[in-house]
Amino acid sequence: MIKKDIFSKSYWKYACVVFLTYTVIAGFLMPVPALEILHETIRNLYFHVCMWFSMMFILTVSLVYSIRYLNKPNEDYDIIASQTSYVGLAFGILGLITGSLWARYTWGAWWTNDPKLNGAAIALLSYFAYVVLRNAMDDEQKRARISAVYNIFAYVMMITFVMIYPRLKEVDSLHPGNGGNPGFNKYDLDSHMRMVFYPAVIGWLLLCCWVASINIRTERIKRHLQNQ
């Protein structure tokens, strides 16, 4: 019996289409604050930052399902935990590449020694290790259990290096809201940008969930056919 749940429903996928279409149109046409150095690249906020938000969200889902798997070893929890972390990794890589391009034209280099860049790279490497770890084991239950435990560790690494380390007072970051500064920079508070930024976050989050849902459903079919 193949499970039917919210992943097969379509209403939230239509919402995703609406939000992202709005993001692309309003993201280019709405007024933005005129700032030195950034100029029009400030519009990257609607795309680059949303990659990271989506990654954080989907990896949190992955963590929750890993914990649920350890609590009750249900095969479906392992499927959701693994597929969501793969999608989270993909969105993280997109965030890293787009950030690198943005950095080239605003900070002057493809890669700087910014704590957030290095932290994000370490976080992604810990999720690469998750993929390698999963592929290294054949026994399904063993793989599910060990990778669930590792996933909790990888999530803690990710939060530490992406959220906590760049915010320490001792390190200085080029990113807004870092280096001892708790809030976002003033351009985030612009009311015109908020009108695009919040729907953009929702839209990209839903797209991330959509891709993950397709992965989850195909993996369910694969396991179902294997078990027959």
Binding site: I2, S8, S10, S213, T218, I221
Partner: peptide, 8 residues
Amino acid sequence: DRKVSRVE
């Protein structure tokens, strides 16, 4: 998405 639904 539809293809997956058909397979299901």
